[in-house]
Amino acid sequence: MQNPWVYLGLFLLVGIIIPIVPIAFSALIAPRKPNPIKQSTYECGIETVGESWVQFKAQYYVFALVFLIFDVETVFLFPWALALNAQNPAVLPAFIAIEGVIFILILVAGLVYTWRKGLLEWA
């Protein structure tokens, strides 16, 4: 196939369908006898108290925020890593490396700031 993305599209399609097959098969032959006790929320035999969709520790959100920033930064680094090995680079490879190092150091400064402010502590 000429275009790799067409192949990938087909692959994703088949990759979604194949896990459905055993579930569908199981739905056909497995027994189904629901009753209220069976369908109750499993909490080791203890009755569920209150609503199940409750609020948990908000700090998970902070980690997701920090992660988001770093995730975006690393995306810039992939083209940089490729430029470092280019056949006829625009500038000396050492300069490209140093540009990347500055980029990373600014990023690490952000991490240090977060650390110093105590946001990485699981309080």
Binding site: L65, V66, I69, V72, E73, F76, W80, E99, I102, F103, I106, L107, A109, G110, Y113, T114
Partner: peptide, 14 residues
């Protein structure tokens, strides 16, 4: 812009 992007993201982090 490449370097400024890093500064911008750190600003967002701060």
């Amino acid at each position: 812009p490449f370097e400024v992007a890093s500064v911008l993201l750190v600003a967002a982090l701060v």
